[in-house]
């Protein structure tokens, strides 16, 4: 008995250092390497990769940002994980010593809100539709992020935003912020337009050189929201995914792709194509500038085709 236990202990001593050490080292090495880039007065972004969520990028595929106003910091999107939120907060601390005034979350997708634990001492604001969506789907979404990203997600919980906001213009430390309650990318999409600097944080409504994602999309409503954004006098446009630009071209690019997507799916259903045939359709050359194009198109067929298909199959009994 005793001998056996000693043997087991000895074995453990041999095994533990060899397996334990690399895991611990891996966790220590993980860093998003967030570097704030100044895009306008008081306004900074953290630019993410134009990729899918992978264990290599840790879910850093978004452009989060902050406005260091004279009366506290406004944070826009908290990122895909607790670790991201913490690193973001540390990076903000190197730019300004002012406290975090408020965090805005634009929609219910995981990379917009899963870093919120790092800002638990500030109000986390979102549209009521976003809060409802995170309450019902947040846990499942978070579990899938753990599956996709693994250790990057350690300690991340899906806490819903704490403060519902409606459409309004608020003044914060010398910045006039127009909160725009829009929809179409999801059921509730918050765009934030800083009238003082002309910076638009477009959230998920605008994609720039990156194919739009559609898991909760209503394309007709989305196109109406793009009309509203296009009417703004934009100096810098920050899409949640893709290239930050100093013009409105990304709005037109998003509109062009969504219009083509909708028309293509409808024509395919009308022609009697099955889902896998639609997924294999040739995508026009002009969209080749969009990254992850084929992957997102394939996902969009899965999201949108069943409903469109139903509309072309008449009742026969």
């Amino acid at each position: 008995m005793t001998v056996k236990r000693f043997k087991a202990l000895g074995l453990l001593c041999l095994i533990l250092p060899t397996i334990g050490w690399p895991i611990a080292a891996g966790a220590r090495d993980k860093s998003y390497g967030l570097e704030p880039r100044r895009i306008a007065a008081d306004t900074y972004v953290f630019e993410g990769a134009r990729e899918h969520f992978t264990s290599a990028n840790g879910g850093n595929i978004l452009n989060s940002g902050f406005i260091a106003t004279g009366d506290g910091v406004i944070v826009v999107q908290s990122g895909p994980s607790r670790r991201y939120g913490e690193e973001m907060r540390a990076a903000i601390g190197k730019v300004t010593r002012r406290p975090i005034a408020r965090v805005f979350v634009s929609n219910l997708h995981p990379d917009y809100f899963l870093g919120s634990q790092a800002f638990a001492d500030a109000p986390i604001a979102a549209l009521p539709g976003t809060i409802d969506g995170i309450r019902s789907d947040g846990r499942a979404v978070t579990e899938n992020m753990y599956r996709l990203l693994g250790d990057w997600m350690r300690g991340t919980d899906a806490g819903p935003p704490t403060e519902p906001v409606l459409g309004a213009t608020v003044v914060q430390g010398g910045h006039r912020l127009r909160l725009m309650p829009l929809a179409g990318h999801t059921a509730a999409d918050l765009a934030i337009f800083d009238e003082t600097t002309g910076v638009l944080f477009a959230g998920g409504l605008v994609f720039s050189d990156r194919a739009p994602t559609t898991p909760h999309a209503d394309i007709a409503r989305w196109l109406l929201s793009l009309d509203e954004l296009e009417a703004l006098d934009i100096a810098v446009l920050v899409p949640n995914h893709g290239t930050i630009r100093t013009d409105e071209a990304a709005i037109g690019q998003t509109r062009d792709y969504l219009t083509w997507l909708d028309a293509t799916l409808r024509a395919s259903a009308e022609a009697g194509l099955d889902m896998n045939e639609v997924m294999a359709i040739e995508i026009p050359e002009r969209f080749s500038v969009l990254s992850v194009l084929r992957e997102e198109f394939t996902r969009s067929v899965a999201h949108l085709y069943p409903k469109i298909e139903q509309s072309v199959l008449p009742r026969v009994n």
């Binding site: 022609a271 009697g272 139903q310 072309v312 199959l313 008449p314 009742r315 026969v316 009994n317």
Partner: peptide, 11 residues
């Protein structure tokens, strides 16, 4: 239950 939606196309 059992409602059918269908359509045929020449191929």
């Amino acid at each position: 239950l059992g409602e059918v939606q269908a359509r045929a196309w020449p191929a």
